[in-house]
Computed example of a mutant assay.
Amino acid sequence: MSGLCEGRVVIVTGAGRGLGRAHALAFAEQGARVVVNDLGVAPDGAGRSRGPAQSVADEIRAAGGEAVAHDGDIATTEGAASLIATAVERFGALHTLVNNAGFLRDRMLVNLDEDDWDAVMRVHLKGHFLPLKHAAAYWRAEAKAGREVAARVVNTSSGAGLLGSVGQGNYSAAKAGIVGLTLVAAAELGRYGVRVNAIAPSARTRMTETTFADAMAAPGEDAAFDAMAPENVSPLVVWLGSAGSEGVTGRVFETEAGRITVMEGWRAGPTIDKGARWTPREAGTAALKLLTEAQTPGAVYGSR
């Protein structure tokens, strides 16, 4: 039986370790040819090594799959363009882009340096935008040339981007930005045959190994089930990256262990229309009344 992604060419950024590695291996197992991108940096973004990307590409090939390593910096125009070109030149096409690369520089806001803000914004938000931009240009050209496009983009947000996370103002802001970018890309690129979605995963990686070190199976689950293994997230990513996800776009899925949740974003709640300008006191009274009718937002991570 052929795999779900047989014949598809897939790029996974940040694929040298953790979630990205799990995604790359899962795509290869389903028949995809994979471009394994990783800059090989430390958890805070320091240093650089080709080793992680090469190791995963070698692992895929050893299992009988097809893969190539790419260690370019996808938060630069040159690196992002090179990434897309590698897929097309090596495998003849590009069908799926999984944006996953990132690192942490956690600080409380009063201690958060401008450099730490810029670095996290750069790798997460710019590191999503530039590969997406260059992939989209390729797919638009394919569509305009009359060739059928069934392209997929899977972006990586976070619960921190949906609810916020104490000590992670930079990371939360970047991940929230990725959701906005996903919605715009889904709206703009649909005409070319591109479907764009995002995930908000929870799993044990270098960025979360302390948080999830002692995670246990939930009640009713197999005690041998490693609930926080990154491999638990990959099946949804593979499906979203396959032709089988046609019709699904502009969505955010939270995924953890054996659970998948469709996240529902901002939409109009209770409202009052006076039909004229409010005074400040009237506006305050109206706002307080509306809040009694509105749903209580989820708690910011780390605030309880």
Rank of each mutant, 00 (worst) to 15 (best):
C5R: 06
G7S: 08
A15F: 11
G18H: 06
G20A: 04
H23W: 12
V34Q: 07
L39T: 01
P43W: 05
P43F: 01
D44G: 03
A62C: 05
G65C: 00
V68Y: 00
T76C: 01
T77G: 12
E78G: 13
E78T: 14
L83S: 05
G92D: 04
V98F: 03
V98T: 14
F103E: 04
R105N: 09
D106P: 13
R107W: 07
D113K: 12
A119V: 11
M121A: 01
M121S: 03
R122I: 09
H124N: 10
H124D: 09
K126Q: 09
F129R: 11
L132F: 03
K133L: 05
H134R: 04
A135C: 14
A143S: 15
K144Y: 02
G146M: 05
N155H: 13
S158H: 02
G159W: 10
G164K: 09
G167T: 10
Q168C: 10
A173P: 05
L181H: 01
A185T: 05
A200S: 05
M207P: 01
T208E: 03
A217G: 11
D222A: 06
A229N: 13
V237T: 09
A243R: 09
V248R: 02
V248T: 08
R251F: 06
V252T: 15
E254N: 09
E264G: 08
G265L: 15
G265T: 10
R267Q: 14
I272Y: 13
G275Q: 06
A287H: 12
L288S: 13
K289V: 14
L291P: 00
Q295T: 14
A299V: 08
